[in-house]
Design a protein around this nucleic acid. Structure first.
Lengths: 340, 340
DNA sequence: CTGTTAGCGCTTTCAA
DNA sequence: TTGAAAGCGCTAACAG
């Protein structure tokens, strides 16, 4: 509780600096002295003060993570990855949960400051032009996870390509009437989430490539969440000519679609194929076919990246792409009968 | 980036202390001086260094939270509550995710130290005798959330009573063959989780009170999780004389039971009533009857408590009990036919 | 009301 | 190899 480096120095009859040196494993200490100091340290049950150390070093040994909606399984999984690697390097993880646009602003503005943290991780939120500027000005290492911006380093997947992948999978199965359920523009714009939008781009592109006209009634957007998706899916499935397959921008939304089929007595995959995105635990559990992205790894990799930047690496503002893959389970199958 | 309090003092031609005073809203500054300083601060775009401030104050402005298994919905909800109130008070939340007994040890040992944080919150883990001692010795404010120990302040519900409540509800519905699915002792002992155990105690007690003999085959325990619960439930439901109702120690486990009924073609609630615990989002969603406990509030309240202790309140080592209530939804009903 | 000064506990030159 | 000394930027106690 109370011993300071000075107490140790005195008790070991060495200079203050020497104690500091053994603390920091400096090679400039004789074996004998080192041992003596070590003994005294143990005896006094001394532990160097982290605050004092940080102050002297001008560092915080802390990485701040700004994340929207803790409650989303994908966010948590990434946080787990971050926490695990940070802990392995003696860094603290301080978290900021964003649930309103106001808080997004204030966190983006206040958190990235050298006296608060040594680096910052931002999950799923793409900073806007001026925000990027502000971030850059701080000089602090910033890395984006699940978002990308040309001026900042990031870890992400290629959402457009992943959207194409999912769509192509459905197409290859023989589906031609394919629906998409994702986040509404108004909603994503508030926070500047980009993944749902990108996946939708991929969806559209793949459809066009296959000479299929996107039908507006097959594309519905709402606030992220199971409930909202369920409502949207219900509407879509009650169309005179409903889709035979639905691509949901996230597993959570796919679960909503699944609920809708249950509400309507539609058999999956016999009458409707569903593909989700993320591969959260529940997906495996419910037999949902989905596009798997490395969630935990994205966090771990992002943390490694900030750590290396903190250690002095030059910030290469490139987005590192992680691989995705389709995990086929029980929610997809060829359509009941052929159609044009 | 660079301006220090000294720069401000110089530019405003005042003493160092005066700047500090306006920074800390001390009333001992004339309005005129204050304004001048404020102007210079704005002009220089100065922000006081948090690290230096912390060092001078001997505080960290940080609360550490030790939580097992981020991925559990209940843990996340509590964390949300903690984050929200901490943020509202300018405190940082640094989190530690426990997924192994080793990490439990090391966190419990290393995290609660004055140079790391000003207070600590521990979720769902009850420290053991010697651990409590060690905690007490640090002199740091420690509050338990969803756990209780006589020497430490805590926020919790009365799990035994809640277990009785759930059981009584089933009993009142007319059920007599009631099963229980909870965490195995080996599992909870590793981390020293206590809630499942306590709920089981309540279950047993209420059964006895009603003169019903607990049947060993109606009580199954396994590692926490949907999958494990599903397996256990399946076994239980395939008994020659299966229970007509099951009380699961958590909603997550109740979901597993629900899956089991689906596997077996058992109708809920016609053939089997299910009651869960926690009232996580999915419960409402799936129409699961459950015992609701204030998750978010427990975090918020716990955070308020540490904050008050940090502010100097005397640590009253009492467990504050939060209320629980049964939320009746579609997974419970009277048994199909009367039985003794 | 306000300026000055003495640390907080550690790291890091700089000499020896 | 080692000791001594100079801060890191801020707060708080002490004179004015």
């Amino acid at each position: 509780m109370g011993a300071t480096i000075r107490d140790v120095a005195r008790a070991a009859s060495v200079g203050l600096g020497t104690v500091s040196r053994v603390l920091n494993n400096s090679p400039l200490v004789s074996q004998a002295t080192r041992q003596r100091v070590l003994d005294v340290i143990a005896e006094l049950n001394y532990t160097p003060s982290r605050i004092a150390r940080n102050f002297a070093l001008g560092k915080t040994l802390t990485v701040a993570t700004i994340a929207p909606f803790f409650t989303r399984p994908s966010v948590i999984e990434r946080l787990r990855g971050i926490e695990a690697t940070l802990a392995g390097h003696g860094y603290n993880l301080v978290v900021f949960n964003i649930e309103t646009p106001e808080r997004r602003e204030s966190c983006l503005h206040d958190v990235p400051r050298a006296d608060r943290c040594d680096g910052v991780l931002i999950i799923s939120l793409a900073p806007r032009g001026d925000e990027v500027e502000a971030l850059l000005v701080t000089g602090l290492p910033v890395v984006l996870i699940d978002a990308s911006v040309s001026e900042l380093p990031g870890i992400s997947i290629d959402d457009v390509a992943a959207g194409e992948l999912a769509t192509r999978y459905l197409l290859d199965l023989g589906h031609r009437r394919i629906g998409f359920i994702g986040d509404s523009h108004e909603y994503t714009a508030t926070f500047n989430f980009t993944s749902s939008w990108d996946r939708h781009q991929g969806f559209r592109h793949m459809l066009r490539t296959t000479a299929i006209h996107p039908r507006p009634e097959y594309e519905r957007f709402g606030v992220y969440g199971r409930f909202e998706a369920r409502v949207l899916a219900r509407e879509m499935l009650q169309l005179p000519e409903p889709p035979t397959a639905i691509f949901a921008a996230s597993d959570t939304q796919a679960l909503g679609v699944l609920e809708a089929t249950r509400d309507l007595g539609i058999e999956v995959p016999a009458m409707l194929s569903i593909i989700g995105f993320d591969d959260i635990d529940a997906a495996e559990y419910l037999g949902l076919t989905t596009v798997r992205q490395p969630l935990f790894e994205s966090g771990a990799r992002g943390a490694e990246l900030v750590l290396s930047l903190i250690a002095g690496a030059t910030p290469e503002p490139a987005t590192e792409r992680l691989p995705v893959e389709i995990v086929v389970r029980r929610s997809t199958a060829p359509p009941a009968k052929a159609q044009s």
